[in-house]
Amino acid sequence: MQRNLTCIICPRGCNLVIELDDEGKIESVSGNACKRGIGYAEDECTAPKRSVTSTVRCEGGGLIAVKTASPIPKSLVFECMKKINGTHAKSDVKIGDVIIKNVLGTGVDIIASGNKML
């Protein structure tokens, strides 16, 4: 079986062509300009992952931009948004601070990706 994917790792957006065997194992990946494309194809065919970015309200007012420190399973994106929207950050939060530790047991933290916006 063949699968076609657009690689989302960088702005180049390579068209990946993936050959899969009967069990869904990858036989070959082509169309990738760099080796990160192969990693992406492997993840995407077995356990797709995505980064999530959003904002969190700060105690006492203002918003702070947040992101998953690394990609989480794609199937958990909306659950992750619920967690984010149910959280308040401290009023003295700074870029890089951990906002939610180990979100949904993924081992990935939600961290502040900006400074407070008023």
């Binding site: 980064s51 970015t53 904002t55 992101k67 990706s113 900006g114």
Partner: peptide, 22 residues
């Protein structure tokens, strides 16, 4: 621009807009 995708070329890592600006 709080989404990611900035800085791959300049810093070799994927940053959000505010992180890149910072």
């Amino acid at each position: 621009c709080i989404h990611g995708g900035f800085g791959l070329h300049t810093f070799g890592e994927e940053l959000t807009g505010p992180e890149y600006a910072y």
